[in-house]
Design a protein around this nucleic acid. Structure first.
Lengths: 194, 194
DNA sequence: TTTGCTTTTGAACGCTTGTTCATTAAATTG
DNA sequence: CAATTTAATGAACAAGCGTTCAAAAGCAAA
């Protein structure tokens, strides 16, 4: 046997990325073998190398795509008040992350399995995202809407709190996403006002 | 060569655990080999098996010891008000975790590398810890000191926020631990009051 | 229907993995 | 000093790792 009937790179390529995403999220990059990814796709290990130069690129591409999407979709409407922008940010963060549990898990857990250069790229994207929130906080401090001692700390505290939702939230659980967003917004709003 | 001069289990044993802790935190359980741990101790891989039945037990023992310590040292003075108990908890959590960055990192990142049975044990300890905080929140709601819609969510949100400190705090950095504790307590206090 | 391109197989590569164990030498005990 | 216990070595094991590549077979175009 060699090429199998129905095989096509437009189909196999996405399936390879999907399988890697799923397995890396479930078992961790280091613990997942190329053969395991191939088995999930239904192919032999050698075939994966038509779609990625190596295992490391598979991880990096997934993380970079996720961070790029995150930044592209982050709302930033300078016409709205700092309070409104903060509310937009909180709602967006929770919803975006709830939609992509595997990507989020990998982006936070597999940083140390990136090569030095790849890590620098992802880390930069992450800081860009943090800066979006800190810019909102600074605007609110300047306008007098917010009362926070240190915008950097509050930025990190808010992101950590919001991202923590992913450790327990499951669609169809006790709380709807609307309720989760409302409750977290309540906490964030109170924490940044006097 | 066989037994080396100066070798003693009371010395090597702790060094094995310390090396495993350090390397697991740095590189991740799956990516660290027994030979790497042995090299860190200055011994051959075979010698490790005088101190642990296998690699999995090395990870589990580190995590269990950490969680047991955490629970043993968690303050809980029923004579104090809910507000005071919450403040105690926040200060304790930040300080305890800041003292043990490697243990904390492992406890949060390596859960998926535990066997099913070992995972159940650690997960139970973690829920016990969360329950300590939720008990305080419930007492505060009952006494009218706190205003929170859902104590379970707020519990998880607070713990996520506090644990997030470990991703950026370094001793000797821009902020002292006292300042960090003060700022996080400010956010938590505001978030749980009306 | 033939030709050339695309996609996959399956074997092979050298290397690393966790773990075991007979052997040896240091430390301790009597 | 002799006997025993303790703690290490280092070689070996089977299994799995990421990756490469010639060969084979399906697909698309002429």
């Amino acid at each position: 046997m060699a090429r199998t009937t129905g095989s096509h790179s437009d189909i196999t390529g996405p399936r390879v990325r999907a399988a890697a995403l799923r397995l890396f999220a479930r078992g961790g990059y280091a613990a997942v073998s190329m053969r395991a990814i191939a088995a999930e796709v239904g192919v032999q290990a050698g075939a994966l190398y038509n779609y990625t130069p190596d295992k490391q690129s598979l991880l990096f591409d997934l993380m970079q795509a996720h961070m790029t999407d995150l930044l592209a979709e982050t709302p930033s409407d300078a016409d709205r008040s700092a309070m409104q922008q903060l509310q937009d940010f909180v709602a967006f963060h929770i919803r975006f992350h709830a939609d992509r549990p595997d990507e989020v898990f990998i982006a936070y857990m597999e940083l140390r399995n990136l090569t030095e250069e790849n890590f620098a790229v992802i880390e930069r994207l992450r800081r860009d995202y943090e800066d979006r929130l800190e810019t909102i906080l600074r605007a609110g401090v300047a306008s007098g809407d917010f009362s926070v001692a240190d915008t950097k700390i509050v930025t990190l505290a808010i992101i950590a709190m919001l991202t923590g939702v992913n450790t327990w939230y499951r669609a169809g659980g006790r709380l709807s996403l609307d309720e989760v967003v409302a409750q977290y917004w309540d906490m964030v709003r109170k924490a940044v006002t006097a």
